[in-house]
Design a protein around this nucleic acid. Structure first.
Lengths: 192, 192, 192, 192
DNA sequence: AATGAATGAGATTTCATTCAT
DNA sequence: TATGAATGAAATCTCATTCAT
């Protein structure tokens, strides 16, 4: 069991080293050599855990996900304040800085495998959000003339648009401010 | 002047070859060797026209720009129908397919030089759009409690969010439909 | 003794796994990882039984040997029909397919250790065959003007030449047909 | 044209360096790094000329071929002395030492590409020799009851068998002596 | 201006082998 | 005796870029 623990630690060390380097340089210019050096393991060890650099990225992109969203469904009360709250809280603890966010996008755009993973993630997000929107429509909180699927899709456009432009911007503003302002307007468009 | 013409033609041939390859593969996996082969020139010639691969991308990303937006300012009449029209028309002739759009994003994310260029482009877009929004606010068409700069910023989030999610999606829907639907909601949020 | 048995079984399982893989791929491209996976043991276990990959091959190349040859010496009667019979029977049960034969040659050619082993094997074969030839010459069955050692050497040339060309050929003919035809001619050359 | 010359020289330098190293070590243990170092070119240069190590070997295995055989057909006179002469002369100038011969076999056995090339070479050899044998049969010099194709096949068995056993032997005897003795017996078997 | 051979640092990946458990 | 995580040297191959012609 000690062995299992060590294995897990090694895996974590590699992932943290990779993230730390992606946060300093771009994805493409980060080499496996650098990663293993920082992680303090041998080059071969990397490939005992990840079959390629792409594979590592697939493990990492879960960081984009908003897991808390799913839990919202079961809570009662008006939807929009709940969502505003969650967006605010999430952004507080968003684990990616600008450079790392860029690195993730870059990796996803450059690898068919990571792209597929991303598509699944988007699909999961949609599946989680649509029921929320539908319940909001049923209780009269949200406009009914726009299909729930469309509203969801647009919310994702808004989310990823804010994310990518923020990551490419050179100013130091916080992501959460952008996100809150943008979603404020988004909510204005969908309340009935 | 014949010589000037030939030079321009060579430059265009190289750019077209590059775009054509980016539209098939990712940016990173497209090599200069492939580009010059398709363009029918020698490898050295590439570097007579572009100082590096990055440099080529800087030339290419103008394709993201919505030049027509600037012209809107001088036309009279209500703003929103005008913008809807222009978005619709632009999308009709959007020159990039999904793969090529992804390749451009990838290139920009991986090159400091291209990223700088992108920032300038974003700044130019803002400078063009803010006055439009301000005039819309002055004539009472748009809400006044949201600063024009914020509205503009959010419009860009919406635009690039739609663009990047569309480019990563595997379905075959047209970009313009996404864009029109998304901006419809956006407009609903900003009208007074 | 149960333990001894298990050890022997493990050793056999590893050898069989290796042979099975050599019969599908080349020697060089077969990895110990693959072998132990197929044998159902851990990687470390391999090295408990064989000190290296080379060592395994040394164990395996005995398959080339024609052990029955030695027994011929003591039987009476004319030599050539006996040898024809034995070649025929051996070929029937030749344990190597083309790919595996190639793999063995490849392994021997690439390892000084295996090469040495092969030389011993060849020497043993010579030692077994020369007396046979000599007795054939004494009883007048074979020409006497060619030294027995030369005849033996040429027999080996014939044997290995047939073996290697067969293994490199892509047609599906049986080894034994080639071998019988070739040795027919060989015998024609040496009978008096 | 000076440039063409230089190119050819570079190609030759690489091939000679490779052969020289194969003649010292085995094929597998000769690295491209060693080859380019000895050839005095950069690593990338190797790949401008050969797409892989396999590719280089394909270029090299022509050394096995007996080009002069083809020319024999048109000369008149008895066949066997002519062939004896040619075998003798060829062996005198056989360009491969033992280690290099082993390296070539090893390379061919380990690469599907090189193996295919080898099969073509064998086929070409057959096509060249069969007519010779047929003409020998027609003029009554050779036995007619063995098909010319079989005789040819067996000649190749004899040739390659002698070659590979010689290359694996540690004694310093000359290849040509082996070859002459072996073919002497072979000829005894086929004369009428 | 055009060429394309040469460059060479550097990338990813492999794999036989070791050794602590 | 069996295990399998860790090793790390070494292998092949890539490719943007340079520069002599």
């Amino acid at each position: 069991m000690n062995r299992e623990l060590k294995k897990e630690q090694t895996r974590v060390r590699i992932k943290e080293a990779a993230m730390s380097l992606f946060a300093e340089q771009s994805y493409e210019s980060t080499t496996i050599e650098q990663i293993v050096k920082l992680a303090g393991v041998a080059k071969g060890t990397f490939f005992n855990y990840f079959s390629s650099k792409d594979d590592l990225i697939c493990d990492l992109q879960g960081l984009f996900v908003i897991e808390e969203i799913v839990k919202l469904k079961d809570k009662g009360g008006p939807l929009i304040p709940k969502m505003q709250l969650i967006i605010f809280e999430l952004m507080q603890q968003f684990p990616l800085n600008k450079q790392l966010t860029r690195a993730l996008f870059q990796a996803i755009l450059g690898s068919e495998k990571a792209l597929d993973k991303h598509r699944k993630l988007i699909a999961d997000l949609k599946d989680a959000i649509i029921p929320l929107v539908e319940s909001g429509q049923e209780c009269g909180e949200l406009r009914k003339e726009i299909p729930a699927a469309d509203i969801t899709q647009i919310a994702l456009h808004t989310y990823f648009g804010t994310l990518i432009l923020w990551s490419m911007d050179e100013d130091e503003e916080k992501l959460n401010e952008h996100m809150v302002v943008t979603f404020d307007l988004f909510f204005k468009g969908i309340v009935s």
